[in-house]
Amino acid sequence: MTITLGGVCEPGSTLVNKTGGWRTFRPVFDYDKCIKCKLCELLCPDMSVDARDDGFFEFNYDFCKGCGICANECPTDAIEMVLEEK
């Protein structure tokens, strides 16, 4: 890397920073309970809830920091926060 004029940065380049390592609890979907309301995707501060082709969602554990907002707000309690084990 050489420094760009004035420190100009490329878009979306924090993707190299895998914040998933910060996590203590990991969110896990119970797809039987999920009603595909998209609230978890909407509220995620880390853009770590990805839509699947079947309308359900999955977590991107590369970036999920385990804040638990998704689990707290899920209207059907379809997300469980599970302690990360080393």
């Binding site: 004035g6 420190g7 100009v8 940065c9 490329e10 878009p11």
Partner: peptide
């Protein structure tokens, strides 16, 4: 879309 004024 470039970013200007990053912190170093």
């Amino acid at each position: 879309p470039k970013t200007f004024g990053a912190f170093a």
